[in-house]
Design a protein around this nucleic acid. Structure first.
Lengths: 126, 126
DNA sequence: TCTAAATATACCTTGACACGTATATACTCT
DNA sequence: AGAGTATATACGTGTCAAGGTATATTTAGA
C-alpha cells in the first residue's frame, strides 16, 4: 500500500499521532484509542510494512515507534502547494492594494458575451 | 469525502499537481494525464465538492483552479511530525558531535548552526 | 435550428479494505 | 509443564469507491 492511502485511514492517523509523543505498546494504543486489538494489530502491520513505524520486542509486548521517512515524502509532495498558497496570499495583497486606488471606478467592459446561463454546479464561480 | 481520502487517489493528486502551475480546462487535463473524460470530470467533482478546486465557466469549457484550504489542513496535520523529525535530526547531530570530540576528527561538511534553546524556523523542512 | 464540441452524469461491475469473531503464536511466571 | 498475558493472523462479510460505457446538458457557430 502506498503512503497516501495509508494515512487516508482515520484510525491509522490517530495511531501515528499517538506515537509522536512516545513509543507505545499495542495494548496501550488499543486502550487509548478504544479500538479492538485485532484492528490495532492490523493497522500497525500496514504502518510497519510501509515504513511509518517500527517495532521492537519487549517480552510479550511489542513497542512501536515512529519512523520519519514516509511522512517526509508526503511533506515533500506538499511543497509546491505551499509555494502556491504563498503566492496566493501575495496576489490577494496586490488585489487589495488595487482596490484601494480604484474603489470608485466601475467596470464597464464585459469580459465576454454570454448567452442564457446554465445552472451553476456547486462550487462553481460565475 | 474527507481531505486525506481525496488525495489518496493518484489521479487526483496528478490533477492537483497539474493545477499548481495554472488553471486548466477538463480537456487539457484529460490530454495531459491521459485519462478518460468521465474519469477526469468525476475526479474534478470530488475535488470541487471537497474545496480543493473551483471552476469558472468559459464558453463550453470549465476552467478549474486550485483552492488552498484543504491542502493547508493536511499540511497542518503534518506539523507535529515535522517537529518530531527535526528533533531526530538534532539528536543525530548531537551524537555526531560527541563522536567528533571523542575522535578528534575534522569535519568536512558544515552542519546547521545550533545554539542553546534553538527553535525551528517557520516552515523549516530539514 | 441543426451540428459539433465540451463537460457532466447515470448505471453497472469489480476489486479493495476495514471490521468482527475466532484462533494461533509467543512469551512470562509459578 | 501449565496458565495467563500480549499480540498476530485467518476467514467471512459488508461497504464503497473507481473506472467503463452510454447518454444527457450546455454552448458556439453555420
Amino acid at each position: 500500500m502506498e503512503s497516501f492511502e495509508i494515512i487516508a485511514e482515520p484510525n491509522r492517523r490517530a495511531i501515528l499521532t499517538l506515537l509522536v509523543s512516545s513509543q507505545q505498546s499495542v495494548g496501550e494504543i488499543e486502550r487509548q484509542l478504544r479500538m479492538s486489538q485485532p484492528t490495532v494489530s492490523k493497522h500497525l502491520r500496514v504502518l510497519r510494512e510501509a515504513g511509518f513505524v517500527e517495532s521492537k520486542v519487549d517480552a510479550q509486548r511489542r513497542l512501536y515507534r515512529l519512523k520519519p521517512e514516509p511522512l517526509q515524502e508526503v511533506d515533500a509532495w506538499l511543497a509546491p502547494f505551499r509555494r502556491f498558497w504563498s503566492a496566493h496570499l501575495d496576489a490577494l495583497e496586490r488585489h487589495l492594494d488595487r482596490m484601494d486606488q480604484s474603489t470608485s471606478t466601475k467596470r464597464k467592459t464585459k469580459r465576454r458575451p454570454r448567452g442564457p446561463n446554465r445552472k451553476p454546479n456547486k462550487g462553481e464561480t460565475k
